[in-house]
């Protein structure tokens, strides 16, 4: 056995999970698929006193769809999204993102809500949800609330979740028929965490254009100047690529996303941003 000892409780409902977490002494953590928490337990990076297992909670696996979008239960696994078992209102962006997360054996257990709540800065879902303008439904001892995806991760491994709060569902808005997207993940080998990950969503009918960027050292950010450049673009050109790359560099510096002296990281991030934008503008 590798983890330090902890207590364990199975929650049968969301209310029970919230109650168990709220009543706990010390560091209680919800357990969903365990594909991020499991390694951290084994490495003893995480040493919770209590794990509250959410896997029996059926309501966290519910998916509902309406005209404006899809609400995905937090415990839906990545492979269900990859395989299209969950309605995809994003014209394939969610399926692409899901298929690039770790390995199939991990995607079969890892959950979309767990990944977001774990908040690894290089995690796959946060930049996708930020670029889409998704929001997270949160349940806690004080009731429910909703947080925009771009306001959810405060710092690496740190979210705005209060103790005892659980991500309940992710609300993904539906893209218009004229929308397009780009997704570029750079990693050393397939399935690794991203060295850099950029997501571009252009939806002119909804007056929506966003560019999100994630990497290993800083919480994911939105690049607003790049989004403005992409929104105004008319087709692809080398000049536009240069403009986007420069704008990305300015956004990265302004956010402190990479050290100003780390020209390699800035070049990688801005190049990945250009590639995502090119894909979005070439569709």
């Amino acid at each position: 056995m590798k983890p330090a000892p902890f207590d364990y409780a199975r929650a049968e409902s969301l209310d029970e999970a919230v109650r168990l977490l709220a009543a706990a002494d010390g560091d209680a953590r919800p357990l969903a698929g365990g594909q991020s928490l499991g390694p951290m337990l084994n490495l003893r990076i995480a040493r919770p006193t209590l794990l509250v297992d959410l896997s029996p909670v059926a309501e966290l696996r519910e998916v509902s769809e309406d005209e404006d979008g899809v609400t995905i239960g937090a415990s839906v696994v990545h492979s269900a999204i990859e395989d299209g078992e969950v309605p995809d209102p994003t014209a394939g962006l969610m399926r692409r993102a899901a298929s690039g997360i770790a390995y199939r054996a991990v995607r079969n257990r890892g959950t979309v809500g767990g990944s977001l709540a774990h908040a690894d800065p290089a995690g796959d879902w946060a930049p996708v949800m930020m670029a889409l303008g998704a929001s997270l439904g949160i349940r806690g001892p004080e009731g429910g609330r909703s947080v925009e995806a771009d306001a959810f991760i405060a710092d690496p491994l740190t979210t705005v979740l209060e103790p005892g709060e659980i991500v309940e569902a992710i609300r993904v808005p539906r893209l218009s028929s004229g929308a397009s997207w780009g997704h570029c993940k750079l990693c050393v080998k397939p399935g690794d965490f991203a060295e850099s990950l950029a997501v571009v969503v252009i939806d002119p009918d909804r007056d929506h254009c966003r560019v999100a960027l994630a990497g290993p050292t800083h919480a994911p950010i939105l690049l607003e100047e790049v989004a403005g450049t992409v929104a105004d673009a008319n087709g692809w050109s080398d000049a536009l690529a240069g403009e986007i790359k420069d704008a990305a560099g300015r956004g990265i510096a302004a956010a402190g996303f990479a050290d100003t002296g780390d020209r390699y990281a800035i070049n990688v991030h801005s190049t990945v941003t250009v590639r995502a934008a090119r894909e979005a503008l070439s569709r």
Binding site: G38, L51, S55, R104, R109
Partner: peptide
Amino acid sequence: MLDGRPARSCITLAVA
């Protein structure tokens, strides 16, 4: 194989 799908048994708790 866990419920017919490949899974990592090292990061799945026996209780889970």
